[in-house]
């Protein structure tokens, strides 16, 4: 599945400019060091962390997109950095656990 399709299926809110690409697998963590260590290229990274340090991390591990859950307000500097690196930064009001219920319904498998 591609990012745009996912956005439509789950009603996600895109916050940054990005190029559409394929998603392979999901990684959930709110700890930077954890994502750096364990997320894989092409993953969907789901987190409640909004600090701008998530963008370099996302860029480095080359995740397909970052989804911020629980309706967290994302700071402007995080969005700007995502724009600059063309990282797909998406948000949703749903908590992580609820969102996973939907993702699983769409048949996206884990990494």
């Amino acid at each position: 599945m591609k990012i745009q399709e996912l956005i439509q299926n789950l009603g996600l809110k895109p916050l940054s400019r990005f190029e559409d690409r394929d998603i392979s697998g999901v990684f959930i963590s709110d700890m930077m060091s954890d994502a750096m260590a364990n997320a894989k290229s092409g993953n969907l990274w789901i987190t409640v962390q909004t600090h701008k340090s998530i963008i370099p991390a996302a860029n480095l591990v080359d995740v397909a997109a970052v989804i911020i859950t629980s309706g967290k307000t994302v700071p402007q500097d995080t969005v700007e950095l995502a724009d600059r690196h063309a990282i797909a930064l998406l948000s949703t009001d749903q908590p992580t656990f609820d969102l996973i219920g939907k993702l699983y319904g769409l048949g996206i498998a884990t990494s």
Partner: peptide
């Protein structure tokens, strides 16, 4: 399990 798989199983 990781967080994703754990969430999925509990949903199921």
């Amino acid at each position: 399990l990781d967080m994703y798989d754990a969430c999925v199983r509990i949903h199921a």
